[in-house]
Design a binder for these strands. Structure first.
Lengths: 142, 142
DNA sequence: TCGACAAACGCAACTAGCTTGCATTCTAAA
DNA sequence: TTTAGAATGCAAGCTAGTTGCGTTTGTCGA
């Protein structure tokens, strides 16, 4: 499905900015932070617009968001036709390069909360060093 | 164990500020954010000192930290003598009042990461509405 | 008990991530 | 084609957290 159809299906207006951002998120496949998106985009996009666009896509269910330990939110979109990244899985965050990865082969566990609490969502972030950074630091030590 | 002994046991200097902060964390028992701590403390404490104190306590293993969805870190300490809050459990965050609770009756699940990644830690945050806020909003609707 | 020194503190300035308000521009439906 | 409401872009502002540096304070040895 192309981005225009995805936006229409979600009853969102087909603006140029939304198409560009959504296209990028789908292409990359892994969760991207606001700053990562800005630096990848070839044309300048106002930061407020980018925040609002990402929020809109998330609210519409096209994208999902996860928070890194740096306090920055990362956003990931998926094509509804294909095997996607529905969001209910753990995420891995590399503390060295800041890149985030979806661990799509696992589900989030069921958590029992105290009587009276109502659960709206949950997120599990595993952090450490990704394979790429690990080989880099090992190379430096040589 | 009193706070002085805890600090000495961790090979940390017994400064007035550390004792006050650690005492507060132990008394409250649930994870507190920087701003919550500042507002509870009766005597003023420099914000940089508070950040550094909390970091020191965490590094020493006396306290542990969890991040809320608002981007703020919350800190929790436990008396090593008693049944404590060792940190390897999920946390519940109330999106209405911002309070955080330890779900100490559960463990964090084991997560399989992709080949080559090394795991340094993980955190699972469940969010929603706590029982106190829920009854409050229900009362308003009446 | 006293003095030296490293550790800790407190102040100012700064950065990143994100939000609010408002005027301008654009999309989509009539 | 018109037009109302939605989306964008700019300026300003907020909160969480960091860095640098001079001053103060525990701690340990004499």
């Amino acid at each position: 499905m192309d981005v225009e159809k995805m936006l229409s299906a979600a009853k969102l207006r087909n603006t140029h900015q939304r198409k560009v951002v959504l296209q990028l998120l789908i292409e990359k496949g892994s969760p991207l932070s606001h700053s990562e998106i800005s630096s990848i985009l070839t044309e300048p996009l106002d930061k407020v617009t980018l925040y609002r666009t990402l929020q809109t896509l998330t609210d519409a269910g096209i994208a999902h968001q996860v928070q890194g330990l740096d306090g920055a939110w990362r956003f990931c979109a998926h094509d509804p036709d294909s095997e996607g990244c529905p969001g209910d899985h753990p995420h891995f965050l590399c503390l060295h390069c800041g890149k985030m990865f979806c661990l799509t082969n696992q589900r989030l566990p069921r958590i029992e909360v105290t009587e009276g609490m109502s659960v709206e969502g949950k997120q599990l972030v595993v952090y450490g060093c990704c394979s790429e950074c690990k080989t880099e630091t090992e190379d430096k030590l040589k």
